[in-house]
Structure formats: structure tokens, C-alpha cells
Design a protein around this nucleic acid. Structure first.
Lengths: 214, 214, 214, 214
DNA sequence: CATGAATGAGGATTCATTCAT
DNA sequence: GATGAATGAATCCTCATTCAT
């Protein structure tokens, strides 16, 4: 009796997530426009058609892949921060370290995709990401700074909104660019130094006149 | 007296420059992948074929368009800074204001193209831009900060490299995102406030312990 | 006493008929090529796969759907005519009125499907329909005319075959086109006028020289 | 010196018409939905892409192909009729003979395409054809009949609109069906007999009571 | 019987690039 | 130089059909 050969495995429950994850990874690696649906299908071991079993269009696939990823990426950070007590400066250091301290290759390339690759191809997705990612993050940080101002830990005349924006988008872009270190040696930098020095700069910048930071 | 045509006035080769400028503008507006060579040709009033008289490929066109633009955009800033005297903090404010204070629509969309649209499509160009644009800019700023540290204007333990990187890439990304304000209301912000508050934050962050900034 | 279920009442096989009827309706509405099997399955509340329990291919489904419909549509007309007595002209009026006078939306769209939509997609079906539908109808009418010629009610030199063909296919096409009245206002016409005036024309055209029709 | 081989000939002026004519022929043979653009391109000796040089979409191609054909097909008939003098009955016979008497294979299959193949796939085209083809034709015929009624040649109570519609659409459908004679023997008929007997029927049907036709 | 996951062959459309004129 | 006709590879998306469950 000949070995039974299945052309494909039937995995109705895992498929969508498998596809979502493969899609995100490959989109992130190559860019949205440079990725063919067949590449994604191949990576999961199915054919193009299968993608259309679960998703309406290529754009829909991207959109859902980002949602899927985003869901997991943000929740923990927000939770960690919400329950935080103690001096605000410590919370801020924690936020930056948590947010940028342990980005693996995949997360970094997803960030690049979102920062760089999606704005003109799927503007709708880009907008949503902006609102639910960066904006949410800097509002969080700005609220922390406000708390520090109220408690006297920070100077009252600091612009908490701009401080939060600059620190976070500065870090974000630096981390995105770090990935291109091979082709552009001038951008290389140690990530821990980047985070810690940014925290120092921010906290120094916020401390009241006449007092030393930390 | 016959119309005298000076050799250096004839410029029969306006074409390439016209093409470069149209290309940059349209690439910036729509993204590289979404721009057809025909669109660029139409904008200049020639046909597709003409582009191939001057440029090898679409990629070559992008590459040269960016070079062409870059040349002009950077020189003045660098010159302005180099000759600067007086307190470093004033120079830094000037740098930020000059660099970001008068970005018209076109420059902004070119920045977006470079930040967002080119990394995966023309990595070579992206790398070059990183080195000649952002890296050069933050090295310039870092040198200013170093001068401030030497003169005692800034605290000696400040990380001038990171401070320069964060301030500039933070501003850059904020300005790029501002353009999407329509779709993502949370990112909207007044540009002058952005620049001035960033300068405040940076200078506060750099001032020596026990002294007030400015 | 337990509910008694008669074998001939159980009809576990409503399914095929439901499918046939849904198929015909949807094919008729949208055309064969524009109808997906899934649409038909959805309409009946089953899934695509189920169709393949009962039918070999999409074409087979169309073929049987038309047969199924045809069976019912023709019998009554033929019966009504066969038993008819009295003057032939009255029978002819009856035939036209019965044949075209009470066509509901569905029947009309089925006619359109047969007239317009099937010839190239399922030629075999189209041929069969021609033979069992139009041809049978005009042979019936031609025989009536022949009877009229024999009885002296109609002129002897009339071409009963052509008269029957023209009257019936003329009416058929007019009724099919009436459905497109929205897009083509020039084709709109009152259906009763169409039938009655056609009958008048036909009967006038057949009456012997020197006598008035009817 | 090796023989120079051109991959294609440059024929900018003929191309569109060549394509239009090939398209119409092939659409007519196989149906719109069953024709691939590549088939049409092959028939002309170019590649698919070339079609898009001249036409926007497949639908646009069909639409223009029909316009192109229609233009030529209708003009002569209308001209011939407009200038006609003498008894109306002769003009009517002429109209029917001119309109249907010399339909070659191609014209017939184009008629089939229009009658049968286009209504649901390109409704817009079908509507236009209805208005500019059949409707125009029967309005022409109806006007002739009206003239006959005024002159006393035809009976005053005849329904000229319906008479014109039935005669022309009856003939049209008969001619369309004749092409399927192979598969459906019952529809076969001699075309001249069809035209002449239809004319007889029509003219008999229109003659005043008590008078003989012709 | 019924499901619905998976297939895979197409087909329309786009567009960078070539090249005869 | 400039044109624009022509190419042809690439890619999204559709859908009849199959088949493991």
C-alpha cells in the first residue's frame, strides 16, 4: 500500500493566524508593494487561493495582520504602566525601557513597515496605527509628565506634550534606522545607551530649575 | 545687432533638471511604487521615451532626483551654522528653526519620501540619504553641544550624540507625521511650538546641575 | 398513535429541486457566466460542496434546471390547445394570450436566459430548448393555421410556417426586450396591446382576399 | 548580413481598426465572456499589452467595436429608404430584403452577439444597440406603414408600431436562430422564403378590408 | 449527506523598458 | 533628440472543482 500523500493539511483554525503572522513578517521584510501574495502563501505552505478564503484583498490582509500584531504588542506595555506607583521618573525610565529595550528583529521590521512602508500604500492603515500606536504612547508619557509637574518632581513650565512626542518619536526613528546600520555606518549606536541617554536627557530637561535630575 | 546667445545661457539641457524636479515632486506625493514614469513625463510635457534619454531606469531617476534635491537643501544650512559665533544655545535654537521652521509642502513631502518611502525600494538611496542628511545633521548638532560642554555652558556628563539624535529625529518624524493630520487628528500640533519646546527641552536637559537653562 | 410518515410524503429530496429552482432564477437574473455556484448554494442555505452531491458540473446544473422548468412550463399550454374546438382564429388568439399574457418576472428572465444567455455557454441546452420550445410552439401554431386554411377560414396561399415563426419569435423578442425598458425607453410598450395587435395583424394577414378578418 | 527580423510591424494607423474588427469577430464567435483579450491580440499579431495602448478595458473594446460596426451597417440602409418613392408596399419589401437579404456569416454572428450575448455582460452596450438598431429600424418601418395608412394603401386601424416591431424582431430572431440549424434542425428555413413570406404576411395584414394585398 | 478548506488554472490589467521611425 | 507603438513579465483576484473530515 503506497504511502498516503496529502497535498495539504487541513488546519482550519490555525490557518488565519499562520497567514497573518507570515504576512506581517514578509510585508515587513520586503515592503507591502514588493510582496506577492504567493510569497506569503508559500511561506505557510498553501496556495494563493487559500488567502482569499480568509481575507478579502491584499490590503485587508495587511490591515488585519497589523491589528493582530498590534493587539499583542501594546496591551502589556499599557498594563505595566497603568499599575505603576512611585516617583514618576522611574516610571518614565520603565516606559522607555519596556517600549524599546527588547525589540527583536521581527518587531523592529514591523515598526519599519509601519513607519516607512505603509503610509502611501495603505493610508488608512497608517492612520490607524498612528492613532493607536504612537499617539497613544505619547499621551501616556505626557500624562506621566503632567503627574510629575503636579507633584513638583518636574518643572511646572515644561511642555509635556512636546517632550513626550520628541522623546518617543526620536527613539522610534533611531531604532528603525539602526536596522540599516550595515549600509549607513553613521547611524549605528548601542541601543541601551540610546534609551538611557534619552531618559537622562528627558529627565534633566524636565527637572525644576536649581535641582539636579533624578 | 543679432541676438547674441551666450553659450552659458543656452542651456539646451533644461530637460534633465525639469525631469528631476518633476520626478521628485511626484515620487514624494504618491510614493515611488505608485508613480508611473508616464506621470512624470506628462508633467514635463514629454513622453516616456524621453526619460530614457537621460536616465537608465526608474531607480536611476529616483536616485538622481534625490541627489539633485539634496545638494541644494543641505548646503545653506551647513554654511549658516559653520560661521556661527556666540553662545551655543543660541546656535542650537537657530539650527532647529532653520532646519524645520520653514519647510514648505514640497520639502515636507520629500522628507516623507526619504523617511518612509524609499528604504525598501531603493535601499542604496536611503543609506546615502541617512549618511548625508540625518547623520550629518546630528553630528553638526553634537559638535555644537560638545562646544557647549567645553565652555561650561552645558553639563559635562551629557550624551551629546544621543541628545542630538533624539532631538533631530524626533522633530523629523513629528513633521513627517503632521502631514497626515487629516487622517489622524491626534498628531496635529503647531510647528513653532514643536520647535521651540524641543529647543527648551534640549537646552534644559543639557544645562549644568543647579543652573537654569537659557 | 405515532405520527405516521408516508413514504411518498417524506420527500427527503427536496434539495435537488430547491437547487434547480434557485439556480434557474439566479442564472436568469445574472446570466450563466456571472453566477457563482456559491450564490446558488447560499440562496438555498447550503454550501457549494452540496451542489456536487446532486450535479456533476455547473453546466449540468444549468441543463437540468432548464429541463426542470421547461417540463412544467410547456405542458399546460399544449394541453389547453390540443382540446380546443371552434374557429381557429379564436384558438390562435387564445394561444398568444396564454403564451405571453401572464408572464411573471421570473418567467421573463428565464426566457431571456434562454434567448440571450445560453447559446454560447451551453450550446447543447440552447439547441434542445429551441427544438422543444420555440419550434414546438410554432409548429403548433402552424398546424392551427393549416386547419384554418383547410376550413376556408384562412386564405389558401398563406405561408403558415413563416407566419407562425414570425408572430411567435417577434412576440418573444419583444417581451424579452421589454425587460430592458429602463435602459432603452424606445422599447417600452404595453404588453396587451402587443399581443392583441399581433393577433390582429396575423389574422388579417391570413384572411382570404375580399373578406374581413375576425 | 543576417536577415533583419522585426518582431512586430509598426502600424499605428491601422492597428485600432484591425483590433476593432478582430475583436468584433471573435466576440461574436465565442461570446464576450469566453473571449480572452489575448485571443484578439493573437489574431492581429500583437500582444495583449497593445490592446491597452488603444482601449481602456475589455468592455471599452467591445463597446467601440460595436459602434464601429454599427456605424457602417446602418447608414446605407437608412439612406436607401429615405430617398424612396412610389408605393409603400414596395418600399417595405425593399427594407426587409435590404435589411436581411444579404447577411453574411460575420454580420449574422454579430447580430447574435448583440441579441444574445451582451445583455447581461455589458448592459450599457446592449441598451445603446437596442435604441440605435432595432428601435430605429422599426420606427422607420412604422413610419412607412403610417404613410401607407394616410394614402389609403393600408387599412386605417392597423397598429403600425406593433406590426413593425413584430415583423422585424421576428425576422431578426429567426435569422439569429438559423445559425444554430446544425444543432436544432427544426429551425432551418430558406432565408428568401422567410423574408418574402414575412413581407406577404405583413402586407396582407395591413391591406384594407375587401381588397387584396399587393 | 454536508461541510468548507484548499486548489490551481486562468484572465484582466499595469507598466518599466525597448526600439523603429 | 523625441516619439509613442509595442512588448511581456508580473500580479491580483476569481471560481469551478476536489476531498478530508
Amino acid at each position: 500500500m503506497p504511502a498516503r500523500v496529502l497535498r495539504w493539511e487541513r488546519r482550519p483554525d490555525e490557518r488565519p493566524n499562520e497567514l497573518l503572522e507570515a504576512a506581517l513578517r514578509i510585508f515587513a521584510e520586503r515592503g507591502y508593494g514588493n510582496t506577492r501574495l504567493e510569497d506569503i502563501a508559500d511561506a505557510v505552505g498553501v496556495t494563493k487561493g487559500t488567502i482569499y478564503h480568509y481575507f478579502d484583498t491584499k490590503e485587508d490582509l495587511l490591515l488585519r495582520a497589523i491589528d493582530h500584531y498590534h493587539e499583542r504588542a501594546f496591551r502589556p506595555l499599557e498594563d505595566a504602566l497603568r499599575s505603576r506607583k512611585g516617583p514618576v521618573s522611574a516610571a518614565i525610565r520603565l516606559l522607555l525601557r519596556r517600549g524599546f529595550g527588547n525589540l527583536d528583529e521581527t518587531r523592529l521590521s514591523v515598526l519599519s513597515l509601519l513607519v516607512q512602508g505603509v503610509a502611501r500604500d495603505v493610508p488608512q492603515v497608517h492612520h490607524r496605527w498612528l492613532e493607536t500606536g504612537p499617539v497613544r504612547a505619547w499621551e501616556l508619557l505626557a500624562r506621566l509628565i503632567e503627574r510629575g509637574k503636579k507633584s513638583g518632581e518636574f518643572r511646572a513650565d515644561a511642555d509635556s506634550d512636546v517632550a513626550a512626542r520628541i522623546a518617543l518619536s526620536g527613539l522610534l526613528l533611531q531604532f528603525v534606522w539602526r536596522q540599516y546600520g550595515d549600509g549607513a555606518p553613521g547611524v549605528a549606536i548601542d541601543p541601551d545607551q540610546l534609551i538611557d541617554s534619552t531618559a537622562d536627557l528627558l529627565l534633566h530637561g524636565l527637572r525644576p530649575a536649581g535641582r539636579s535630575a533624578r
